[in-house]
Computed example of a mutant assay.
Amino acid sequence: MSADAKPLSQATRSEGIRRRRGRLRDTRITLSHGGGGKAMRDLIDDVFVAGFDNALLASLDDQARISLAELAACGDRLAFTTDSYVVDPLFFPGSDIGALAVNGTVNDLAVGGARPLFLSCSVILEEGLEVATLRRVVRSMQAAAAAAGVAVVTGDTKVVPRGSADKLFINTAGIGVIRAGLELDPSAVRVGDVILVNGLLGDHGAAVLNARGDLALESDIASDCQALNGLIDTLIEACPAVRCLRDATRGGVATVLNEFALACELCLHIDEHALPIREEVKGLCEILGLDPLYLANEGKLVAVVPADGAEAALAAMRSHPAGREAVRIGTVCATPPATVVMATLFGGERIVDMLVGEQLPRIC
């Protein structure tokens, strides 16, 4: 679904809800805001219902009720995903935990070929969190949802005692509909296929690491956090035979490529010269002994497409704002099977294995 599309027609929404909403006057979260009484109702009304502002949510039922007929009109299969977000710090160059929670779930649906439609939002709040911080996060979530063409229609709020959490954790679940006839599966990858990415790699992981302030480094690196459903629609329209897609989040591009290689039992061969990594990210990685191929991204995908559709796919990606720096990074070969191999800058080759351990804590 493109960014300006509406989730579903207004016929699916509960119209005519006109109850009086509560108003939150506290400046910090207290345990009473999770106690189920008036304080909790005021928090939900004034922060979440007002922030996400749609009739399905405003009814405050224990569920959002959505027309099956209209869902079926969008495709022939339902996609459902969930993810939790515990990033530290909450706000970092280019984005924050709120936009991250929306875009991450939207992208998990979109790379499976689904048109994202509706999200849930559950939050765990630490006692003492500033209400202004929570409002800022919700505003960011709503802006990201509007840009992606989805609606946050249900949710939950929990408050835990001071010290039992770190300020704010978010879980978002999402549903979407997969268009009829579309099958994206890494097991469908074939020898000769081409590997594409939609832009600069490693920016999110580098931005979050630098934002913690532990390194005292000056850098303009910003997170690439963005929704990819519009880009994916454009790509599929230009190249309907696309084999598979995946967003390169935790574990980075290296992890995605290894997952594809294991699924198709072929060799994914990439060229280090072709990898789009900004010099600032390379420099940060050199200082810390990190490999940018394993750095997290929150607005980058890996696509495998047939060779005869690669140019059309690349041109389509570059025509979209989320893919202007898209490049070809490799091809699929027969051997060695179930392996990722990289031609290095020095003229040799090395195996790019799955990440062992954790490069960066709490990057999403």
Rank of each mutant, 00 (worst) to 15 (best):
A50Q: 14
F52L: 07
I66F: 02
A50E: 10
L71N: 03
D42V: 00
C74A: 14
A39V: 03
M40K: 07
L60C: 09
S67W: 02
G51Q: 12
N54H: 12
T81M: 15
A58F: 01
D76R: 03
D45L: 05
D61Y: 04
D53F: 10
A69V: 14
L57P: 02
D45A: 06
G75P: 04
G51D: 09
F80E: 14
R41F: 07
A64T: 12
F48N: 03
A73H: 04
M40F: 01
G75N: 07
D61W: 03
R65I: 10
I44E: 09
L71D: 03
L78D: 00
A50T: 15
T81Y: 15
A64C: 11
F48A: 03
S59H: 08
R77F: 06
A50F: 01
A58Y: 00
D45S: 05
N54P: 08
L68P: 06
R65E: 13
F52R: 10
G51R: 14
A64G: 08
Q63F: 03
V47G: 00
L78N: 00
M40L: 10
L78F: 03
V49L: 11
S59E: 12
V47T: 08
Q63Y: 04
D45I: 09
L56F: 07
V49N: 00
A55Q: 13
R65K: 11
D61G: 10
S67F: 05
N54D: 13
A79E: 01
A50R: 15
L78I: 12
D46Y: 06
V49D: 00
D53E: 13
L57A: 04
A64H: 09
L43C: 10
D76W: 01
A64K: 11
R77E: 03
D61M: 04
S59K: 03
A72H: 06
F52H: 14
L71I: 07
G51N: 11
L57R: 08
G51L: 14
L60A: 08
C74K: 15
R65T: 11
D46S: 06
D61T: 04
C74L: 15
A69K: 13
S59A: 10
D61R: 07
L57Q: 03
D61Q: 08
D42G: 01
A73K: 13
E70L: 06
A72K: 12
I66E: 04
F52T: 02
M40G: 10
I44V: 15
D46C: 05
A69Q: 13
L68R: 09
A55G: 14
G75L: 06
F52M: 05
R41L: 11
L60W: 00
L60Q: 14
R41C: 05
G75I: 04
S67I: 03
F80A: 15
S59Q: 11
G75R: 01
A58L: 13
